[in-house]
Design a protein around this nucleic acid. Structure first.
Lengths: 250, 250
DNA sequence: TATTTCTTTGCATGTTTGTGCCTCCTTGTT
DNA sequence: AACAAGGAGGCACAAACATGCAAAGAAATA
């Protein structure tokens, strides 16, 4: 990756996320922290960003486009994603479906990560366009625009011919007893299939989704291998761990 | 290969790929790195590209966030797209593959348009997220990141089960006698298949692609139903119309 | 055709740039 | 105040670069 290119990427990330941590950038861009520091220093002296201890801040007034972006980027999700990164290694076959949290995770994948990503979500696929060591396999189907994922019989059949090491499931509702659920049956069906072809299943959930339920059950919670959350009450934690799930919180 | 010719090739590559690395160009064009460096230096002093350490960048809009949209937007392409709109009606099944011109067309489709769009390009699919009356069917496959289209055997087989009224083909090279060609055989194969399952075929081409050729033939030009171009010389116009193609220019 | 002139190219040379590592210093946090 | 995390500056190495030069072509002229 060219230096200028990398610095432009840093500018984009700072503008989008409002603050960056040098060590995070180092991982995401797959260069040493020293290089990142030098970049930040340079960009600061150009006046493009504001350098601070351990990272940098966005400079100047928020742009017009800002309010929409704020909805997309969310610090909590970014933190969850950082924790999930620990379970991702080179040469894995990842299966990733839709959702903004998953999209955030993909943005934070190291550029040098090697492996295969299978996805039915066009935004996820596009977000991987700069990851030169990742082969992206798209599962086709009928685009369900509300969540930007492909669904339907074609999707189901394509999945039947594949397998994955780790499924990163986008979760809408989860309850320790009822399980994982979602308002659309067509999505539930595909998610269930995805879980069944994967060795391990990982889900990142924000607190607002914990202990909520909707109409269509995807699977019981004990189908999850890893559950990544924000701080949760120790009682709840025990409730999940009793089922053999590795629960990660802060 | 002549110097001038080589430099033009470099310009084309930079425009297409947004960045180049000197050592890559050296291999691709089969000249020494010194020569490439001299070329890049020259082109930079002409102001055509932006020279950076170890390569060069495309000039013009500094890729700043949402200005990427502006970058893709190009008046010529927009004009071509406007003309293409005349051939698109409600309740058609459209097959649309990749390319920035096709993406521009999709952006200009009326929000109220009713129908079906089949595509193997994630950006095209995403651009249709606000068209509530259009059903989007994505063809899966292995994502070819350079052109952001899905290719491969899965793509081919999925296409075999479908048909379309109008195929809007993204064209890289066209010559009245040689036909439509493209540098990658995998893309040529898919485009040929797409043409074969569609009743009509439409292509928008900017003048810089007219009368150019590359290695892999997609199909002869007379497979096109409509060819939309900028102003072209009457002789060329006749050349195409002789083959039964409806040629639209300004 | 032969010869001269000019351009282009590749190679050899020393120089500069970009990056990672190391050591020592600074900052923020407990 | 103690301690860990972050940062500055120097060093080292490889990759990329500029420059000069000579050989190979191309173009022009005799």
């Amino acid at each position: 990756m060219l230096k200028q290119e990398r610095q432009q990427t840093i500018i984009d990330i700072v503008n989008e996320e409002h603050k960056v941590i040098a060590s995070d950038l180092s991982r995401r861009l797959s260069v040493s922290e020293d290089t990142i520091r030098r970049d930040l220093k340079e960009l600061d002296s150009q006046g493009v960003i504001k350098r601070v201890h351990s990272g940098a801040l966005r400079k100047g007034p928020p742009v017009q486009d800002f309010s929409t972006r704020r909805e997309i980027f969310n610090e909590t999700k970014s933190n969850l994603a950082n924790k999930a990164l620990h379970y991702i290694e080179d040469d894995m076959v990842l299966l990733i479906d839709g959702g903004t949290t998953n999209l955030q995770l993909v943005h934070q994948l190291p550029l040098s990560l090697k492996g295969t990503v299978i996805t039915n979500s066009p935004p996820i696929a596009m977000a991987l366009s700069n990851h030169n060591e990742i082969e992206v396999i798209m599962i086709g189907g009928t685009l369900f625009k509300q969540s930007m994922v492909n669904l339907g019989i074609d999707t189901y059949e394509a999945l039947s011919t594949m397998r994955a090491d780790l499924y990163i499931m986008g979760v809408y509702n989860i309850d320790p007893e009822i399980g994982i659920s979602i308002p659309r049956s067509s999505e539930a069906l595909i998610k269930r299939k995805m879980a069944s072809i994967s060795t391990e299943v990982l889900a990142m959930v924000t607190n607002d989704k914990l202990d909520t339920v909707s109409n269509h059950i995807v699977c019981p919670t004990d189908h999850l291998t890893y559950l990544i959350t924000e701080n949760v009450h120790p009682d709840i934690k025990r409730l999940y761990e009793k089922q053999g799930i590795t629960l990660i919180d802060s």
